[in-house]
Design a binder for these strands. Structure first.
Length: 220
DNA sequence: TCGACACCCCGTCAAACGAA
DNA sequence: TTCGTTTGACGGGGTGTCGA
């Protein structure tokens, strides 16, 4: 990782990442994230399957109960705590999508890479830092000791250029992944909302029909 | 079983945009 | 103006389904 990079990279074995697929609230590993007591999620780790189950459960209950305030969205707020956002709140963040102020992170990953960052993908003025948890395969550039004082050789310039390119590609790779995740979540939220509104619409039509019937019977 | 097809996810590039 | 971020577009690979 480059010395000036605002993100902190935690490397774990690819096998571990693939096998467990978890986001761990490890204070040592994550630097300054709050402990799990600040999270609405009681466990230390969020497993993919747990998240999916919670998502499904909350999504269906949101629709069944006609509750637009219930929702299965995960966020990390400015204090760093992890929580499930209400659907309505999440929806509101989508209205300013893609630049909403709430931090979000990738829950699903096929290559064991999880990104925790704000939506700009950089440190925020308030001291928020972007976190990355990635596998060794992601390849992090090394910081060369350039204190020799002599002019860099063409070879060194070449190395520097290719290192910069690698870093740029890596950042873009992660950005693309995050962008797709956000887009999917956005679409899912819209679909959720459509379902809720359709249900509401149906109920209102039935209510109107009942009131009309009542009115007709009274006037007869 | 095999080929065609659809679907999904990924990496990369390029353009647009905002911040410094 | 430069640099970093975001996102649409494109092409490639993996997987599931279906009909021959």
């Amino acid at each position: 990782m480059d010395a000036g990079d605002s993100s902190q990279t935690i490397t774990q074995s690819a096998e571990d990442a693939q096998a467990s697929s978890v986001i761990c609230k490890d204070k040592n590993a994550r630097g300054d994230l709050p402990d799990s007591s600040t999270s609405t999620h009681p466990g230390d780790c969020l497993k993919d399957e747990d998240v999916e189950k919670k998502f499904d459960a909350e999504a269906s209950s949101s629709i069944l109960n006609n509750n637009t305030n219930a929702g299965p969205f995960i966020s990390v707020n400015q204090s760093g705590s992890v929580q499930f956002l209400p659907c309505q709140q999440r929806y509101e963040t989508f209205t300013s999508w893609p630049r909403s102020p709430i931090m979000q992170f990738a829950v699903h990953s096929r290559n064991g890479t999880y990104i925790v960052s704000d939506n700009m993908g950089q440190a925020t003025p308030g001291g928020m830092t972007a976190y990355q948890i990635s596998s060794p395969a992601s390849g992090h550039s090394q910081v060369n000791d350039s204190s020799s004082g002599s002019l860099p050789s063409p070879q060194q310039l070449d190395d520097d250029a290719s290192r910069k390119r690698e870093h740029r590609l890596m950042k873009n790779r992660e950005a693309a992944r995050e962008c797709r995740r956000k887009k999917k979540e956005y679409v899912k939220c819209l679909e959720n909302r459509v379902a809720v509104l359709e249900k509401q619409n149906k109920m209102l039509i039935e209510e109107l029909k009942a009131l009309k019937d009542l009115y007709c019977h009274k006037t007869e």
